[in-house]
Amino acid sequence: MSEIAEKVKAIIIDKLGVEASEVTPEASFTNDLGADSLDTVELIMEFEKEFNVSIPDDQAENIGTVGQAISYLEEHAK
């Protein structure tokens, strides 16, 4: 697993209070990991801070799973 993927998983575990085993690439933040709309906003902000990127709202809407977050950040992280 890439370093980015590791960090993304760690943030999700920390912010959503879930077990590492639940954080699979297919896992949806809202449907599988118990996130509500505010949790999702907070996750995106944490990704922005950790990876020094700015994620526009229209792109953040497309980040709904662990895998989508990792792909986006692997592409855009500085």
């Binding site: 505010l38 906003v41 907070e42 902000m45 922005e48 801070k49």
Partner: peptide
């Protein structure tokens, strides 16, 4: 501005 979404609530 990087205010946490849980800040106000």
């Amino acid at each position: 501005p990087r205010f946490n979404p849980f800040f106000i609530p």
